[in-house]
Protein backbone atom coordinates (compact mmCIF):
# COMPACT_ATOMS: atom_id res chain seq x y z
CA UNK A 1 0.00 0.00 0.00
CA UNK A 2 1.06 3.63 -0.37
CA UNK A 3 2.85 5.26 2.52
CA UNK A 4 0.66 6.91 5.19
CA UNK A 5 1.71 10.43 4.28
CA UNK A 6 0.62 10.26 0.65
CA UNK A 7 -2.58 8.51 1.77
CA UNK A 8 -3.26 11.47 4.06
CA UNK A 9 -2.42 13.92 1.25
CA UNK A 10 -4.86 12.19 -1.11
CA UNK A 11 -7.77 13.95 0.60
CA UNK A 12 -9.74 10.77 1.22
CA UNK A 13 -9.81 11.42 4.98
CA UNK A 14 -11.61 14.73 4.42
CA UNK A 15 -14.10 12.93 2.21
CA UNK A 16 -14.60 10.44 5.02
CA UNK A 17 -15.19 13.21 7.57
CA UNK A 18 -17.59 14.99 5.21
CA UNK A 19 -19.57 11.76 4.79
CA UNK A 20 -18.91 11.53 1.04
CA UNK A 21 -17.72 7.91 0.88
CA UNK A 22 -19.59 4.68 0.19
CA UNK A 23 -19.77 2.12 3.02
CA UNK A 24 -17.05 0.03 1.30
CA UNK A 25 -14.74 3.05 0.99
CA UNK A 26 -15.43 3.94 4.62
CA UNK A 27 -14.47 0.45 5.72
CA UNK A 28 -11.21 0.73 3.72
CA UNK A 29 -10.37 4.06 5.40
CA UNK A 30 -11.13 2.59 8.83
CA UNK A 31 -8.83 -0.34 8.07
CA UNK A 32 -6.00 2.06 7.11
CA UNK A 33 -6.59 4.10 10.25
CA UNK A 34 -6.39 0.94 12.34
CA UNK A 35 -3.00 0.12 10.78
CA UNK A 36 -1.38 3.58 10.89
CA UNK A 37 -1.64 5.83 13.95
CA UNK A 38 -0.75 8.87 11.82
CA UNK A 39 -3.80 8.25 9.63
CA UNK A 40 -6.03 7.66 12.65
CA UNK A 41 -4.83 10.91 14.19
CA UNK A 42 -5.41 12.89 11.00
CA UNK A 43 -8.88 11.34 10.63
CA UNK A 44 -9.83 12.23 14.20
CA UNK A 45 -8.57 15.80 13.70
CA UNK A 46 -10.73 16.20 10.60
CA UNK A 47 -13.80 14.86 12.39
CA UNK A 48 -13.18 17.15 15.34
CA UNK A 49 -12.82 20.11 12.97
CA UNK A 50 -16.23 19.38 11.46
CA UNK A 51 -17.74 18.89 14.92
CA UNK A 52 -16.46 22.34 15.70
CA UNK A 53 -17.84 23.65 12.41
CA UNK A 54 -21.25 22.10 13.12
CA UNK A 55 -21.23 23.40 16.67
CA UNK A 56 -20.48 26.90 15.42
CA UNK A 57 -23.86 26.77 13.67
CA UNK A 58 -25.65 25.86 16.90
CA UNK A 59 -28.84 27.86 17.36
CA UNK A 60 -31.09 28.99 20.13
CA UNK A 61 -33.94 26.49 20.10
CA UNK A 62 -37.48 27.76 19.45
CA UNK A 63 -39.68 28.10 22.55
CA UNK A 64 -41.54 24.94 23.50
CA UNK A 65 -39.51 22.79 21.13
CA UNK A 66 -37.84 20.80 23.92
CA UNK A 67 -41.14 19.49 25.31
CA UNK A 68 -42.61 18.88 21.86
CA UNK A 69 -39.63 16.92 20.56
CA UNK A 70 -38.98 14.96 23.75
CA UNK A 71 -42.65 14.02 24.16
CA UNK A 72 -42.84 12.77 20.57
CA UNK A 73 -39.52 10.95 20.71
CA UNK A 74 -40.39 9.26 24.01
CA UNK A 75 -43.80 8.28 22.64
CA UNK A 76 -42.12 6.68 19.62
CA UNK A 77 -39.35 4.84 21.43
CA UNK A 78 -41.46 3.86 24.44
CA UNK A 79 -43.47 0.66 24.15
CA UNK A 80 -46.45 1.55 26.38
CA UNK A 81 -48.45 4.07 24.32
CA UNK A 82 -48.58 2.42 20.86
CA UNK A 83 -49.53 -0.98 22.34
CA UNK A 84 -52.41 0.51 24.31
CA UNK A 85 -53.96 2.22 21.31
CA UNK A 86 -53.45 -0.84 19.08
CA UNK A 87 -55.29 -3.08 21.53
CA UNK A 88 -58.07 -0.52 21.88
CA UNK A 89 -58.53 -0.51 18.14
CA UNK A 90 -58.65 -4.31 18.08
CA UNK A 91 -61.33 -4.32 20.81
CA UNK A 92 -63.45 -1.86 18.91
CA UNK A 93 -63.10 -3.80 15.67
CA UNK A 94 -64.01 -7.02 17.43
CA UNK A 95 -67.16 -5.40 18.81
CA UNK A 96 -68.05 -3.90 15.45
CA UNK A 97 -67.76 -7.23 13.61
CA UNK A 98 -70.78 -9.22 14.90
CA UNK A 99 -73.06 -6.26 14.21
CA UNK A 100 -73.03 -6.73 10.47
CA UNK A 101 -73.25 -10.55 10.69
CA UNK A 102 -76.97 -10.99 11.67
CA UNK A 103 -78.03 -8.83 8.71
CA UNK A 104 -76.34 -11.15 6.22
CA UNK A 105 -77.55 -14.31 7.92
CA UNK A 106 -81.26 -13.45 7.41
CA UNK A 107 -81.05 -13.07 3.62
CA UNK A 108 -83.06 -15.85 1.88
CA UNK A 109 -84.35 -16.24 -1.68
CA UNK A 110 -87.85 -14.70 -1.97
CA UNK A 111 -88.76 -16.37 -5.27
CA UNK A 112 -89.73 -19.62 -3.54
CA UNK A 113 -92.28 -17.88 -1.31
CA UNK A 114 -96.03 -18.60 -1.88
CA UNK A 115 -98.44 -15.64 -2.39
CA UNK A 116 -99.88 -16.25 1.09
CA UNK A 117 -96.47 -15.78 2.62
CA UNK A 118 -95.55 -12.86 0.33
CA UNK A 119 -96.96 -10.27 2.74
CA UNK A 120 -94.82 -11.64 5.50
CA UNK A 121 -91.86 -11.74 3.19
CA UNK A 122 -92.33 -8.09 2.23
CA UNK A 123 -92.71 -7.14 5.86
CA UNK A 124 -89.58 -9.14 6.69
CA UNK A 125 -87.68 -7.45 3.81
CA UNK A 126 -88.71 -4.04 5.05
CA UNK A 127 -87.68 -5.00 8.57
CA UNK A 128 -84.39 -6.35 7.21
CA UNK A 129 -83.78 -3.18 5.20
CA UNK A 130 -84.49 -1.03 8.26
CA UNK A 131 -82.26 -3.25 10.32
CA UNK A 132 -79.45 -2.93 7.74
CA UNK A 133 -79.82 0.84 7.68
CA UNK A 134 -79.82 0.86 11.49
CA UNK A 135 -76.77 -1.36 11.60
CA UNK A 136 -75.00 0.83 9.09
CA UNK A 137 -75.79 3.90 11.15
CA UNK A 138 -74.62 2.21 14.37
CA UNK A 139 -71.46 1.02 12.67
CA UNK A 140 -70.75 4.58 11.55
CA UNK A 141 -71.24 5.73 15.14
CA UNK A 142 -68.84 3.02 16.30
CA UNK A 143 -66.24 4.11 13.80
CA UNK A 144 -66.37 7.74 14.84
CA UNK A 145 -66.41 6.72 18.51
CA UNK A 146 -63.29 4.67 17.75
CA UNK A 147 -61.58 7.67 16.21
CA UNK A 148 -62.68 9.96 19.03
CA UNK A 149 -61.41 7.49 21.61
CA UNK A 150 -58.03 7.13 19.96
CA UNK A 151 -57.72 10.91 19.57
CA UNK A 152 -58.74 11.44 23.21
CA UNK A 153 -56.32 8.82 24.37
CA UNK A 154 -53.52 10.51 22.46
CA UNK A 155 -54.52 13.86 23.96
CA UNK A 156 -54.53 12.31 27.39
CA UNK A 157 -51.11 10.75 27.09
CA UNK A 158 -49.74 14.01 25.72
CA UNK A 159 -51.24 15.92 28.64
CA UNK A 160 -49.88 13.37 31.10
CA UNK A 161 -46.41 13.76 29.59
CA UNK A 162 -46.72 17.56 29.77
CA UNK A 163 -47.87 17.37 33.36
CA UNK A 164 -44.86 15.26 34.27
CA UNK A 165 -42.53 17.78 32.66
CA UNK A 166 -44.25 20.68 34.41
CA UNK A 167 -44.23 18.91 37.78
CA UNK A 168 -40.56 18.15 37.46
CA UNK A 169 -39.87 21.80 36.60
CA UNK A 170 -41.98 22.96 39.52
CA UNK A 171 -40.14 20.65 41.93
CA UNK A 172 -36.79 21.93 40.66
CA UNK A 173 -37.94 25.54 40.96
CA UNK A 174 -39.21 24.99 44.54
CA UNK A 175 -35.97 23.48 45.62
CA UNK A 176 -33.90 26.18 43.96
CA UNK A 177 -36.09 28.72 45.68
CA UNK A 178 -35.33 27.09 49.03
CA UNK A 179 -31.61 27.57 48.39
CA UNK A 180 -32.10 31.17 47.31
CA UNK A 181 -34.07 31.94 50.49
CA UNK A 182 -31.63 30.27 52.83
CA UNK A 183 -29.97 33.08 54.82
CA UNK A 184 -26.82 30.98 55.30
CA UNK A 185 -25.95 31.39 51.62
CA UNK A 186 -23.84 34.35 50.58
CA UNK A 187 -24.13 35.71 47.07
CA UNK A 188 -20.90 36.35 45.20
CA UNK A 189 -21.30 38.26 41.94
CA UNK A 190 -18.83 37.22 39.24
CA UNK A 191 -18.13 39.92 36.65
CA UNK A 192 -16.65 39.31 33.20
CA UNK A 193 -12.97 39.96 32.58
CA UNK A 194 -11.66 41.56 29.34
CA UNK A 195 -11.48 37.99 27.93
CA UNK A 196 -15.29 37.82 28.22
CA UNK A 197 -16.68 41.27 29.03
CA UNK A 198 -20.32 40.20 28.78
CA UNK A 199 -19.92 37.28 31.21
CA UNK A 200 -21.99 37.54 34.35
CA UNK A 201 -22.70 34.87 36.97
CA UNK A 202 -23.28 34.40 40.70
CA UNK A 203 -21.95 31.91 43.17
CA UNK A 204 -24.01 30.99 46.23
CA UNK A 205 -21.71 29.90 49.01
CA UNK A 206 -22.70 28.48 52.37
CA UNK A 207 -19.63 28.61 54.62
CA UNK A 208 -21.32 26.41 57.26
CA UNK A 209 -22.51 23.55 55.10
CA UNK A 210 -19.73 24.25 52.56
CA UNK A 211 -22.24 24.02 49.75
CA UNK A 212 -21.58 25.90 46.53
CA UNK A 213 -24.15 26.63 43.84
CA UNK A 214 -23.56 28.46 40.59
CA UNK A 215 -26.18 30.63 38.90
CA UNK A 216 -25.22 31.81 35.41
CA UNK A 217 -26.78 35.00 34.08
CA UNK A 218 -24.76 35.10 30.91
CA UNK A 219 -21.75 33.21 29.59
CA UNK A 220 -20.80 32.95 25.91
CA UNK A 221 -21.50 29.41 24.65
CA UNK A 222 -18.32 27.34 25.01
CA UNK A 223 -16.73 26.15 21.74
CA UNK A 224 -16.61 22.39 21.06
CA UNK A 225 -14.13 20.61 23.27
CA UNK A 226 -14.29 23.28 25.96
CA UNK A 227 -16.25 23.52 29.18
CA UNK A 228 -16.53 26.17 31.88
CA UNK A 229 -14.95 25.33 35.23
CA UNK A 230 -15.47 27.05 38.58
CA UNK A 231 -12.57 27.74 40.92
CA UNK A 232 -12.63 28.77 44.56
CA UNK A 233 -9.69 30.99 45.45
CA UNK A 234 -8.47 30.26 48.96
CA UNK A 235 -5.57 32.42 50.17
CA UNK A 236 -4.72 33.08 46.52
CA UNK A 237 -4.70 29.36 45.59
CA UNK A 238 -7.26 28.06 43.06
CA UNK A 239 -9.28 25.03 44.24
CA UNK A 240 -11.33 23.05 41.71
CA UNK A 241 -15.07 23.55 42.36
CA UNK A 242 -16.21 21.43 39.41
CA UNK A 243 -17.17 21.92 35.78
CA UNK A 244 -20.44 23.49 34.61
CA UNK A 245 -22.91 21.31 32.68
CA UNK A 246 -24.31 22.63 29.42
CA UNK A 247 -27.60 23.52 31.15
CA UNK A 248 -25.84 25.33 33.99
CA UNK A 249 -23.57 27.27 31.61
CA UNK A 250 -26.64 28.29 29.62
CA UNK A 251 -28.19 29.64 32.82
CA UNK A 252 -31.11 27.21 32.80
CA UNK A 253 -30.77 26.25 36.45
CA UNK A 254 -28.87 26.60 39.68
CA UNK A 255 -26.26 23.89 39.82
CA UNK A 256 -24.60 22.43 42.85
CA UNK A 257 -20.83 22.36 42.54
CA UNK A 258 -18.20 20.65 44.70
CA UNK A 259 -18.24 21.54 48.41
CA UNK A 260 -15.67 24.18 49.33
CA UNK A 261 -14.33 24.58 52.88
CA UNK A 262 -12.99 28.08 52.63
CA UNK A 263 -12.79 30.71 49.90
CA UNK A 264 -12.30 34.44 49.54
CA UNK A 265 -13.18 34.62 45.84
CA UNK A 266 -14.54 32.57 42.94
CA UNK A 267 -13.50 32.55 39.28
CA UNK A 268 -14.53 30.86 36.06
CA UNK A 269 -12.22 29.68 33.26
CA UNK A 270 -12.81 27.88 29.97
CA UNK A 271 -11.01 24.53 30.22
CA UNK A 272 -10.82 21.44 27.99
CA UNK A 273 -13.89 19.20 28.46
CA UNK A 274 -13.75 17.36 31.78
CA UNK A 275 -11.94 20.23 33.49
CA UNK A 276 -8.33 20.68 34.61
CA UNK A 277 -6.58 20.09 37.93
CA UNK A 278 -5.34 23.67 37.95
CA UNK A 279 -6.53 26.54 35.75
CA UNK A 280 -4.81 26.50 32.35
CA UNK A 281 -6.78 29.27 30.67
CA UNK A 282 -7.41 32.97 31.37
CA UNK A 283 -10.14 33.87 33.86
CA UNK A 284 -13.47 34.68 32.17
CA UNK A 285 -15.37 35.94 35.21
CA UNK A 286 -14.45 36.60 38.81
CA UNK A 287 -15.79 37.98 42.08
CA UNK A 288 -14.70 38.24 45.73
CA UNK A 289 -16.81 37.44 48.79
Amino acid sequence: MEDPQSYIESGILEQYALGLLTPAERAAVEAEAARHPAIAQELAAGQLALEYYADAHARELPAGMRDRVLTKVLAQVGSAAPVASASLRADVDALAQPQSAPGEAVVRPLAAATPARRGWAIAASVALLLSLIGNGWLYGRWQSADHDLVALQEDQSRLAANTMVVEKKLGDARQQNAVLRDAEFRFVALAGTPAAPAAHARVLFNAVSRRVYVDVQRLPAPPAGRQYQLWALNKGKPVDAGVLTVAAAAGERLERMKDIASAQAFAVTLEPVGGSATPTMPIRAMGTI
Binding site: A54, D55, H57, A58, R59, E60, L61, M65, R66, V69, L70, V73, L74, V77, G78, A221, V246, A247
Partner: peptide, 22 residues
Protein backbone atom coordinates in the same frame (compact mmCIF):
# COMPACT_ATOMS: atom_id res chain seq x y z
CA UNK B 1 -32.30 4.19 29.54
CA UNK B 2 -34.96 6.56 28.15
CA UNK B 3 -33.93 9.40 30.46
CA UNK B 4 -30.71 9.57 28.44
CA UNK B 5 -32.76 11.13 25.63
CA UNK B 6 -33.37 14.24 27.74
CA UNK B 7 -29.66 14.57 28.48
CA UNK B 8 -28.97 13.95 24.82
CA UNK B 9 -31.35 16.72 23.81
CA UNK B 10 -29.86 19.22 26.25
CA UNK B 11 -26.37 18.44 25.10
CA UNK B 12 -26.72 18.13 21.34
CA UNK B 13 -30.01 19.67 20.16
CA UNK B 14 -28.71 23.24 19.66
CA UNK B 15 -25.92 22.07 17.33
CA UNK B 16 -28.03 19.42 15.57
CA UNK B 17 -30.90 21.86 15.06
CA UNK B 18 -28.44 24.43 13.72
CA UNK B 19 -27.02 21.99 11.19
CA UNK B 20 -30.38 20.49 10.17
CA UNK B 21 -32.09 23.86 9.76
CA UNK B 22 -29.12 25.03 7.68
Amino acid sequence: DESALTLFYDRYAPALFGVISR
